[in-house]
Amino acid sequence: MKREILDRLLEGQKAKRPLALVTDLESGRQLLLDGGETLGELAGDAAAEAAAARALDSEKSGRLPESSLFVQVFMPPLRLVVVGAVHIAQALVPMASLAGYDVTVIDPRQAWASDARFPDVKIADGWPDEALEALAPDRRTAVVTLTHDPKLDDPALITALNGPAFYIAALGSTRTHAKRRERLLAAGLGEAQIARIAAPAGLAIGARSPAEIAVSILAQMTAALRGAPPLVKAAPPQPAREGAPA
C-alpha cells in the first residue's frame, strides 16, 4: 500500500467520511474512493471505480466474482445517543464504545452529565429534542432514552421517531410504556411509529444490575443492526402423520 493511500484513509476516517479501497490482489495496485475523488494506481480503471461506488452503496466488503479485485469499505462509526446520564448510562457508554459506537450522552441536568461521571464521552447539555435534532440521527444511529422522566424522554423519542434511526429504545416497565404510548399518541404520533420503540428496552435476559441491563440493550441494538431473526422461533409444523420419519 502506498503511503498516500494510507494517509488519505486515515484522514477520511478521522473526518468520518465513508471510503472504499479497491485492491488488485494479483498486482497489489489500489484505488481509494473518497467522496467523488479517486487516488491510487488503479484510478481511472472503470471496473475498480464501479466496484468502489457499488461497495459504498451496499456498505459491503468482499472479492468481486471472476476478478482479482477486492473492495473494502470503511464506514464512519455507528452512533449511539443516550438520553439520560444515569447509572445505566455509565455502563452502557463504555460497552457501546468498545463495540465501535461513537457515543453522545444528552442530559440537560448538569449534576448528572458531569465529566467525572462520563470521562471521554461527548455530552450535550441541551434539551433532549433540540440536542437530538442537532445530532441529526441517520440510519446508522441508535437512540436510547434512560431518564424515566417523560419530560426528558418523550421529546427525544418524538424527534427520534420522526427520523430513520435503526434502533430506538426506552427504559421503563411495560406499564410505564403503556402510559408513554398514550402520551405519544396524544402528541400526534401514529401507532406504527410508536411500535418502533423497543420497550422495555433490551432483550429479556433477566438483567438486574445497571451493567446487565446495558448488556441486554447492547445485545438488542446489535440484533436490530445485524437483522438477526427473533430469538424465539415459531414451533415447527407438526408431522403429517404419526411415526413419520423426522
Partner: peptide, 16 residues
C-alpha cells in the same frame, strides 16, 4: 498488513 478478503463456512474474523 494482512487483510481478510474472503471467508467460507464459519470463520472467526469477518472480511476486512
Amino acid at each position: 498488513m494482512a487483510t481478510v478478503v474472503a471467508t467460507w463456512g464459519s470463520s472467526p474474523r469477518p472480511v476486512g
